[in-house]
Each structure stands twice: as structure tokens, then as C-alpha cells.
Design a binder for these strands. Sequence first.
DNA 1: CGCGCCATCGGGGACTCCCCTGAAAGATCC
DNA 2: GGATCTTTCAGGGGAGTCCCCGATGGCGCG
Lengths: 216, 216
Amino acid sequence: MSAAPNRIRVFLVDDHHLFRSGLRTELGEAFDIVGEAGDVDTAIEGIRGTRPEVVLLDVHLPGGGGVAVVENVLRDTEEVRFLALSVSDAPRDVILLIRSGARGYVTKSIAPADLAEAMRRVRDGDAVFSPRLAGFVLDAFRGEVPGAVDPELDQLTAREREVLRHIARGFTYKEVAARLHLSVKTVETHVSSVLRKLQLSSRHELTRWATDRRMV
Amino acid sequence: MSAAPNRIRVFLVDDHHLFRSGLRTELGEAFDIVGEAGDVDTAIEGIRGTRPEVVLLDVHLPGGGGVAVVENVLRDTEEVRFLALSVSDAPRDVILLIRSGARGYVTKSIAPADLAEAMRRVRDGDAVFSPRLAGFVLDAFRGEVPGAVDPELDQLTAREREVLRHIARGFTYKEVAARLHLSVKTVETHVSSVLRKLQLSSRHELTRWATDRRMV
DNA sequence: CGCGCCATCGGGGACTCCCCTGAAAGATCC
DNA sequence: GGATCTTTCAGGGGAGTCCCCGATGGCGCG
């Protein structure tokens, strides 16, 4: 199966046939395209069967998105490296892909030569991100997604935020009441308001909400 | 590619004079070494004064380590990019540096040509890690620091860990029971065991315990 | 001043959480 | 085969959570 030993074995995953065709044309000489897929299930099956070194993966895919492919394949093997290739440079997409186990993320506007270089680097184990995306990833890693003055948080009153912080830390209503010199009933009222305003239904979701926003 | 015209302005931080000398010799032609320092305070002052584009930074430094330099400088400006250069490739060191805001981390065994390339990429905003370190960083980002087999977690049975994961995500006992096809009572039993073994007393502490270990 | 918003409380009820005791089946180890 | 561990499940009870219904007072605003 393997052609020249130095050609990297690549699998293409993108739901646009034309785009895959473009990739084949641009990469076909320097890389060994062992297979391709246009949806999640086909991709998983194909990657399992062909064992590529690098998977070029679109973020937005029918059947669950690129994340589903990465998670599914990496459950079995660690041999395959994923390089996400997407039109989107939304921080959220990038973060989710990296969390799932992709080792790089570049946008489709990348020059073919740069893409080839990125693929080689990913194959070698490097982490590859285009400049703007690197900032997102490292910022998320540092735990400070900047900007974002939260409109969700803004609709809470000062007292409600105060109570929220305590609840999110795991204190019971009784404990919060003692700390804020309130009655348990007042705490309950505030928590109810917070839950209603944030469209949540339990203190556990509230905890997750707060930790996601790094209020703790 | 770039030689004389737009030389990148670089600041060197390393407590070994001889090593700085080596860097100057190797990089002096292609880069503009605007200053250097051998300890934390001198480094902070020097970087503030010379405004380099890239700081080559040793991890182990007298006066607080590289982390102290990065955090201190980045409090004022975002213009400076840090590339950590260290003999250590301990995951802990790497993670701490990245958390503090460095945009790359390579070991001192790197070839001069590769170091030059890494510096250019960091200057351009890329995240740069040598192959082995990339794994550490991305794994940590994914929440699985490989070393560190947790003795706390080890004393839990497989089923208990399974239940723990669901509880930590905020599911009620009833929901967990449904997802795992168990009775609520069984879930209660497992949760009790987990709480007892981990010396915790509520599901909220359990959530925090799990999130601290990045099980969610 | 009336109106709305906020903060502070209460009763009551349905549900959830956590612990206690107890038990039965299966797997594993010696 | 017996000891141990794991996994499964049950009844009962005290505490915690969340919602419903209400109430009072303070504050700013037109």
C-alpha cells in the first residue's frame, strides 16, 4: 500500500466534495492520500481502516462534527494525529477541538505550502496553530478568555451575584445564610431568582455555570 | 528567509553567562540581541526598557524562575512574546510556563536553525513546542496529565469512577441511574463509597474534587 | 404619591441528597 | 471451598434543595 516511505499518509475529512478535490490536487504529490470521507461515520470507519498518520479534519461535519471523529478514533489508538482545518476561527470551535484531542488547528485560508508544513509538523508531534488561533488556545489554557462582559451576569443584582458565588463554592443554603447574615429563606429566594434568570434548574448547573465563567 | 533587513529584536534571559554567549554567537547574525539578563529582576527591568519582540527565557532562574518574569511583564503589555528555553522537559515546568503566558517552550538541545525558526514563529504569534512537549501541553489542556497516577482515584473501583464522573457533571442520582441502567439505590451506594473513600461529605465537594483533577 | 424593583422573611410541599442497616449474586484469590 | 471484594438493590430517615404561595419595608422615578 505505502508508496514512497517519506510521503506522509493522510486522510481527508470534509463534507464538501470540491474542497476535498482541491486538497487532493494540492497535496497529492507530496502526500499519500489514503482515503477521504464526507461525514462522521464514514470518517471513523475510514480512519480505522487506513491508519493514516495525519487526518485533515473539517470542524463542521454532518453527524456530530469533527469533535466526534477525534474522540471516537482516539479512544482506540493514539497513533493518529488530527489537524483541524476549518473556515471558522471561533474560539469555541478551536477549544472544543483541542480538548477532544486534535493537535493543530488552521483555517482554510492557509496557503498550500503552509498547510503542507503544518501537516509535517503535526505528524512529527508538534502542536500547530495559525497565529490568531494560538492566542485563543493559550488564553483558554491560561484560563482567561478575555473580553466578554457577560450579559447573563449583568441581569443579576449585586446581592444575587453575592449569593451565587457562595452557592457555586458548594456552601449549603444554611451556610450561605450564616456567612451573609441572612435567613435561609432569603437565600432560597435569591437562588431561585438566579436560577430563573439564568435559565438553570439546579444548583449543580449553577456551579458549572459559575466555574465555566471562572467566578470561583 | 529573513536575514539582515528586519531582524527580530530579541532579549536573552539565562543565568548561565556561557550559555548566553553561545546564543549571541549563534543568533547574533540573524537576530538583533537588544539585551540580556541573568536573574529575574534584571530581566524584567531590561525587557521593560528594550521592548523586544521575543524573549528567550530560561525556566530556572534565581529570583523566582521564568514564570515570575513572564507574569510580571505581561501585566503591563501584551506586545512581548516569550519562548521558554530550558534543559528541563518536565511536564510541570512546561505547564506552569504556559499558564503564566509563554507562547512556546523548547529544550536547549534544539538545533540553532530550529531555534531560529521557533523564534520567528513565536514572533508571528504561533504557539511553538518541540514534539514531546506539545504532547504534555495538549494533554494537560485536555485534562490528562499522564504521569501522576492518582492514588486517591486508584482506590475507587471502575464502577465507582463511572458514577463519580456522572455525579461530577451535575446529574441527579435519578439521571445517573437512568444513564447507567441502575436503580437509584445502587447509585446512592456508589456515591456513598466514593465520598467515604475520598474523605468528602457532599456531592458538591465531589464536583470540585473531580473538576480539580479535570475528570470533567 | 403610586409604581416598580430590590431585599428581606415565612409556611408548606415535593423532591433530592446522604447515611444507616441489610442482603444477594458473581468474580477473584489462596 | 472459604474469604474477600465488587456490584447490585432495598427500607427508612434526617437534612438539604427548589418551588409555590404570600408578606413587609426601602428605594428611586415620574
